[in-house]
């Protein structure tokens, strides 16, 4: 066991970790937007839109994410949409994260009793005001633990983007291994990096959650 040959690749490893983080944050942000919009559509009155969202969720939750990345990267160009590896992986992972987020946020919205909505309407508030000020904050709190768990799964899942040669951490590890033949050492190092990133996010989410959702839970 010798980790010294890896030292000269430290900049590549750092760059790879940064790309992994970028990919995760971009996919999470767009995925969350998809999640909120999809959850609102699922609870809306337009039947065709509900079916469309339902179909999207089933498609992306019941097919391998690797195939989803391949389709965006290899198949979309035949329809005239050619994306570089990073962008293709971002799109595919956003859609993947979005499909899970829709269900998580929908269950968060469902957890708010209708009596809260009624109370808001009875005070003369509009539908949007009731949603924004009365339903959404406690719904997000209820969905928060599941969203953050899904975020960590997304972080670990970005390694799939290596298969379309996006320069994220796992892809960089493959490159270093091919140069050094130090398989164990390389994968041990990136394993520690993934673990450290995941644990850091968990700690960060706990702090953010405590700051954002300060009201006491129901007894």
């Amino acid at each position: 066991m010798n980790f010294l040959p890896l030292w000269r690749y430290q900049n590549q490893l750092i760059d790879g970790a940064i790309v992994t983080l970028e990919l995760t944050v971009i996919a999470a942000l767009f995925g969350l937007l998809i999640g909120i919009a999809g959850a609102v559509a699922l609870k809306g009155r337009i039947k065709s839109l509900r079916w469309l969202v339902r179909g999207y969720i089933e498609l992306f939750r019941n097919t391998p994410s690797l195939i989803q990345i391949f389709i965006v990267f290899f198949v979309l160009p035949t329809f005239g949409l050619k994306l570089p590896a990073f962008e293709a992986a971002s799109v595919a992972l956003s859609l993947y994260f979005g499909a899970y987020s829709v269900e998580i946020i929908r269950s968060g919205l469902d957890s708010i009793p209708n009596s809260q909505v009624e109370a808001g309407h009875c005070l003369g508030l509009s539908g949007w005001q009731v949603f924004r000020h009365i339903v959404l904050p406690p719904a997000l709190r209820n969905a928060y633990p599941a969203v953050t768990s899904q975020f960590v799964l997304l972080l670990l899942g970005t390694s799939l983007a290596s298969q379309v040669a996006a320069d994220e951490l796992f892809h960089v590890a493959g490159f270093i291994e091919s140069r050094t033949y130090r398989s164990f050492e390389v994968y041990a190092v990136i394993c520690v990096v993934y673990f450290a990133m995941a644990m850091s996010f968990k700690a960060l989410f706990a702090l953010v959650g405590a700051a954002a959702f300060r009201w006491p839970r129901r007894r």
Binding site: S115, Q116, E118, A119, G120, H133, I134, P137, P138, R141, F213, W215, P216, R218
Partner: peptide, 10 residues
């Protein structure tokens, strides 16, 4: 209402 319906997050 019977169940108060205060907004718990405010």
């Amino acid at each position: 209402f019977q169940a108060f319906n205060l907004f718990p997050h405010l």
